[in-house]
Design a protein around this nucleic acid. Sequence first.
DNA 1: ATGAAAGCGCTAACAG
DNA 2: CTGTTAGCGCTTTCAT
Lengths: 329, 329
Amino acid sequence: MAVTIRDVARASGVHVSTVSRTFSAPHLVNAETRNRVLAVAEGLGYRPNRAARALTTGRTHNLGLIVADIANPFFPPLIKAAQAQARERDYHVFVADTDEDPVLEQELIEMLCKQVDGVLLCSPRLSNRVIERLRAQVPFVVVNRRVKGLATVLMDVGQGVRAAVGHLAGLGHRRVALLSGPAGSWTSGEIRESAAERAADLGLELTVLGPNAPTEQGGLAAAGAVAAAGVTGVLCYNDLVALGLIEGLRERGLDVPGDVSVIGVDDSLPGRLSRPKLTTITMPTAAAGRMAVDLLLASVAAGEAAPRTTARLETSLVIRESTQRASSP
Amino acid sequence: MAVTIRDVARASGVHVSTVSRTFSAPHLVNAETRNRVLAVAEGLGYRPNRAARALTTGRTHNLGLIVADIANPFFPPLIKAAQAQARERDYHVFVADTDEDPVLEQELIEMLCKQVDGVLLCSPRLSNRVIERLRAQVPFVVVNRRVKGLATVLMDVGQGVRAAVGHLAGLGHRRVALLSGPAGSWTSGEIRESAAERAADLGLELTVLGPNAPTEQGGLAAAGAVAAAGVTGVLCYNDLVALGLIEGLRERGLDVPGDVSVIGVDDSLPGRLSRPKLTTITMPTAAAGRMAVDLLLASVAAGEAAPRTTARLETSLVIRESTQRASSP
DNA sequence: ATGAAAGCGCTAACAG
DNA sequence: CTGTTAGCGCTTTCAT
């Protein structure tokens, strides 16, 4: 077993509580004693056992962060921002991947909840009912999902979607498709609603195709349906789907943006690196990550009395190369 | 505070030790009692506190996984594979991102080591010396770095690199460049060594340019130097660098593969989705993740006596669209 | 098969 | 400023 507080106490000729104070309330201990203890601890390679500390303080100084898929480039910027923000607050973030599986998601939450002070749920696929039940166990903050009575960070994708549909209309597209996302996704619902509304306003004919897996495979698989739908513009659930769709369209001899204009959502790395560069909707993922951590830490500190704030972050359309004027019908 | 083992004991009229056994050694308790306890626990929403359990057993059933950059598409497949493998062994993996910062890396290890039974170090930037020192605290398995006396999983990138240089030579390229990676990267050293050796064998003139940041920014920034070097083929530290380089070359009016052939390393998502599709070297990341977890768990179980296995995984060249015959000189 | 008691490493009153 | 004492939630002998 590793070196404990007791070893340090013995070796420096003080009581364990003095050693404890040296680390958790240094100002309460004589400078001379403190230095001696510190030196001994250093020499022995002592590190306080955070798990044991958590047992008495009730604070682990850990946060859990649950995402559907680490490999989805939407998440890493959020994860990094959350970790950085947490570190500034002397907290650490444990990341877990649910593989888009609601059952696994619930299991992870339940196993995590005793080891962390709070959990950040990003784009959860869980039903609101389950979330409501789980919240008794541990403070939650939810990103991109509306759960009543819970602190929430929402990215207002509708804003960007309306701009995107307007952009398509402005380019002369009359028949457009929407490739929706996974069934449990709040964002997918938001996209769909905003797109339908704006399309109706502008007199566009909108076909909704889906649900689709939120991956390039999902987009690839949908290419046939898109081609068959006879549309000239497509808005996709995310960049990966858009990229997969472009690939699938190309396999069918359809050029993007020559024959079909394609718009993604997320403004992720692959979209920026692809050819044509993807027209997409920026999501303020880093800001969301930071804000979610702050909200969560506030919840942790306030306990039951925590404010259930809802933060709405803005999104916007970035026009690049995957959209162009509709070829005359 | 949440519901504890004591609450369950009281509510079901047995002693805490019986409740404990019900969960950790069910066969030692009368079926009838067990069912009653289970029912009560279920009703109360009791979940064993893993941190407290860890305090007595000395096993947290957690593993730490440290990577330089979650946003680097090289890592997610490895992370997912490691998490899946660990879950099968009833372990959980906590992921942490060091932001390519050795100091942060060390801090993370030190803070993690008391909350996990072992740590997986992926492509560490830490010096071997520091790793040697830290290993006293917690079992390690290292991926893509050779540390004497430590269990190691190595991806034999040299194999792929030799094929890549051969591929370039076969296409008639005579002057080629290598964009190396970060200073602390073992993989970068391996690539360089294998490339230099094979280039010498084949009579190619090889220019090494670097170190470069392992991101598309790094590649973008190196485009000028590549153009100035007057080479017709470039091997890059990873796909991101390659993609950035292609972008930078294009800004300078140079076409890939028309004017310059570019090869990446990793076979990552953005490389598959980009245009031209990137010729690259596949890295067996998922296999490495699984293997690393198995080795680590073996280390955890065996303690000091753990075998310090070194596993070597094969890599290979995938020829796609970013390389072609050298334009006549 | 179950209960009693000790203790994992640490913190938190409370004395002194 | 420092020592004493009592646990945090759980497991683990050792009895019974």
